[in-house]
Design a binder for these strands. Sequence first.
DNA 1: CTCGAGTAAAGCGAGTACCT
DNA 2: AGGTACTCGCTTTACTCGAG
Length: 253
Amino acid sequence: MARKAAGKPPEEILLDWKREQASLKARVVDRDTEAWQRDPAFSGLQRVGGVDVSFVKDDSGSACASLVVLSYPELEVLFVDGNGVLHHRGFGVACHLGVLTDLPCIGVAKKLLQVDGLENNALHKEKIQLLKAGGDSFPLMGGSGTVLGRALRSHDHSTKPLYVSVGHKISLEAAVRLTHSCCKFRIPEPVRQADIRSRDYIRRTQEVQGVPAPPSGRSKEAQRPKACPQGVSEEPAGTSKGTPTGGKACPRF
DNA sequence: CTCGAGTAAAGCGAGTACCT
DNA sequence: AGGTACTCGCTTTACTCGAG
């Protein structure tokens, strides 16, 4: 998780990142800014991006940031594997990328980040049980009384919800609707493709470098390409040395 | 200040379902 | 029927906090 910064001790790097987070946080926009976001069918939206960061084993200073751009059946928006305002400092990776790119950004997490009083307790599990069909969701109200995100059942056949939060320039309501509309499986297709491709890139890179690749029994190389958003335009950003939250040297868009 | 316990998140792999 | 891909739960790892 650490950036190989020029001779700086890790604590100082961490402080730098926190300062950067605090300054960028003021620039987060948590309302709809595009016309397509207010359209029930998202018409006008043409491209959906998915971002995922995979880390290289035995090399804490390197990571592979993967950006996948899918054409949307009818904006330009980024799905990020991680949280937006649902974060310890209210500024997760989705906010960070959104502010830096000035694109509408949605944070999609697979597990509940237990912040501001949010807990994966019995009550929470009970609410999950009440999500009967794909598209059903409930608000994630923090102890401070603010709604930090929504738990969304993304798929009829999935029992575990996704945790959707505002990253930048989109309302929570539109973020949840769009996330659901991009889910062929539990994970939104752009994020799923970014995850698959970043892992694959690291695996291939390690093979080239002579590092024995892990057993590829579960290789996701040739996964079903029949995702609802069509036309995958892969953009393997390659290994980049940067802040995990998309700092100055982060993914090249 | 150091060490250990507790907690949360990420990674891995088994089981299962679907497709050819 | 065999291969491929997805979900979910267990394990591992990292981090935080409190006690000595």
